[in-house]
């Protein structure tokens, strides 16, 4: 059958006013100035969330107990990037890690530095490399480096 013309439509998320949970991340960012990681712990089951969560997903109760979390941890998984988000090739491969920090039951993701792609492995010990000048923003955590 014959090809037909196209007409446009849009979904304008720019017109939306989003409110999303931010207490946990705001508190975490504040503490990051001191190179500390602050999450919270469920007083019932002990699960530790980073950033802090307002409820425990396992116990379905509101939780408030702060928990300090180590900046050392273990690689849970990783990937080596060869293309950017648009699929264009990168100049050099980029290591990205998913890390479970000691004392936390959740994980965070970040770039891996000072490690060759072929040396990265699951179970590898790493630590956060903090920025010298910290401003209370996620860039304060520069990367993960070998422990």
């Amino acid at each position: 059958m014959e090809e037909t013309r196209q007409v446009q439509g849009t979904w304008d998320l720019s017109t939306f006013k989003f409110r999303i949970e931010g207490e946990g991340i705001k508190n975490m960012l504040k503490e990051m100035k001191e190179a500390k990681l602050l999450g919270n712990r469920c007083h019932k089951c002990g699960t530790v969330y980073l950033p802090a969560n307002f409820y425990c997903r396992k116990c379905h109760i509101a939780i408030h107990e702060p928990a300090e979390i180590s900046d050392h941890g273990e690689v849970m998984s990783y990937t080596i990037g060869y293309a950017d988000v648009r699929g264009n090739p990168l100049d050099e491969p980029r290591v990205s890690l998913m890390v479970k920090l000691d004392g936390s039951d959740t994980w965070i993701m970040g770039a891996g530095e000072d490690m060759k792609p072929e040396d990265v492995h699951i179970g590898m010990r790493v630590k956060i490399k903090w920025a010298d000048q910290r401003v209370g923003n996620l860039q304060d955590m520069e990367s993960f480096i070998p422990e």
């Binding site: 990037g81 993701m109 770039a111 996620l138």
Partner: peptide, 24 residues
């Protein structure tokens, strides 16, 4: 909050590319 979603540096590595979390 300061993340770099392009994965250039810091805590931005959301999968490090278009395949996203699937790679992990």
């Amino acid at each position: 909050a300061g993340i770099d979603v392009t994965g250039q540096k810091g805590m931005g590595a959301i999968g490090g590319g278009s395949a996203g979390g699937i790679s992990y």
